[in-house]
């Protein structure tokens, strides 16, 4: 794909060359695709400044030189970045683009194969000891030493019933200057009496990493995911 050449006013009698068509026209129109997979197949070498429209998410995006970034209004908003089906013993959402203020995530109806399994998330899949701290409603304010290897998002869920929802926000996720912070709420189906008892967890978590977050790895305290959906949004 040719890089954009700028603006050219075509005059009567001008010859429209392939280079002009590629450089002045194709690189500058809004190209419409069914989804990001179709776009990736069609444009193997995207050029900075190209603009595309994805029909599945109704999002207009520009190519920054390294990633497609949603064009949001001046007042901000949320952009759906990915929809992922949970599977296997862990599921990673990778190549998360930068350029947003926060990441907002919803995990809908996660169902573990093993009864009473909890769901965790690891940004950048960092599993080093003493990288995380999980604070819940019983944690007093104070000096808290990092002491964990993951964020614990929920309590255990039943392995048959899933009418649960977990949501979290990762603040300032693409900063390379600050540690990372997560705020999460989870309601899930208790392993005992799953249709009449909600398991609730509220979490404020901290992560001793100044790397920009580009992936989220979801895993369980035991066994595999049977099902579940992860919606990831960029928030401006």
């Amino acid at each position: 794909m040719a890089a954009g050449l700028g603006y050219k006013e075509f005059l009567t009698g001008d010859v429209l060359t392939a280079a002009d068509a590629n450089g002045y026209l194709a690189s500058q129109v809004v190209m419409v695709f069914a989804d990001s997979a179709a776009r990736a197949a069609a444009i193997t070498s995207p050029q900075e400044g190209m603009i595309t429209f994805l029909k599945d998410t109704n999002s207009t995006e520009y190519y920054s030189g390294s990633a497609y970034v949603a064009i949001a209004g001046a007042s901000g908003g949320m952009t759906l970045l990915s929809t992922t089906t949970l599977s296997g013993s862990s599921t990673a959402v990778t190549s998360i683009p930068g350029g947003y203020i926060n990441l907002y995530c919803e995990i809908i109806n996660f169902l573990p194969a093993t009864d009473d399994a909890r769901i965790y998330v690891r940004p950048n899949n960092i599993s080093t000891a003493s990288t995380y701290y999980n604070a819940d409603t019983t944690t007093a304010s104070g000096n808290l030493a990092f002491n964990d290897t993951t964020f614990t998002l929920s309590l255990g869920n039943d392995n048959v019933t899933a009418t649960n929802l977990t949501q979290f926000t990762l603040f300032n996720y693409d900063s390379t200057a600050t540690w990372k912070m997560i705020s999460s709420l989870s309601m899930n189906n208790a392993a005992t009496n799953p249709t009449t008892t909600v398991s609730y967890r509220s979490l404020i978590g901290f992560m001793a990493s100044t790397s920009a977050i580009t992936s989220l790895t979801f895993h369980l305290s035991a066994g595999n995911f049977t099902s579940g959906t992860v919606l990831l949004y960029g928030v401006k």
Partner: peptide
């Protein structure tokens, strides 16, 4: 070994 799923959020490749 257990199975891991990797979903590229930009290309949608799974």
């Amino acid at each position: 070994n257990p199975i891991i799923r990797i979903h590229n959020s930009q290309t949608d490749e799974v």
